[in-house]
């Protein structure tokens, strides 16, 4: 098994869905900078307006419906991936200023900016002497 497999879509398994159909875990990068946490998620085939982002009690969830792009009866000659809604939840331990969360969506990639609460930013304390 090569590690290339990580790049494929994984079915979401965290909670049961209320409607049938496969659900997938988007691949993400999470980056921390001085002022914010940055979450970058692959959501191919999703419409920007349909992405649902929720942040509550330190739990961040990203859901995005991805409708089938081919008709139901399509017979695939090669079928290496499935299409279905994306869903993933994260527990964020950093203090986030929820009112300033911002999101962009380009080329099937969601970028979420989660600004840290001011007090959490490292402060330089100069030593008096």
């Amino acid at each position: 098994m090569t590690s290339e497999a990580t790049l494929q879509k994984e079915p979401a398994t965290d909670a049961e869905a209320t409607r049938p159909g496969p659900r997938y875990l988007p691949n993400v990068d999470i980056i921390e900078t001085k002022n914010e946490l940055l979450l970058v998620a692959d959501l191919p085939g999703v419409a920007a307006g349909e992405i649902d982002i929720e942040f509550e009690d330190g739990q961040l969830s990203v859901s995005a419906p991805a409708k089938p792009r081919q008709s139901e009866g399509t017979r695939y000659l090669v079928r290496e991936y499935g299409v279905g809604d994306f869903h993933r939840t994260f527990r964020v331990s950093e203090q986030i200023d929820a009112s300033r969360i911002a999101a962009e969506f380009n080329d099937g990639v969601l970028t979420l900016h989660l600004p840290k609460v001011e007090a959490v930013k490292p402060r330089k304390i100069s030593v008096q002497g």
Partner: peptide
Amino acid sequence: AVNVWEEGEQLFAEAELPGT
């Protein structure tokens, strides 16, 4: 990963390439 299917006299191929 690629999906390939046929409709009439055309083949279709689809791949997910977010961020490209």
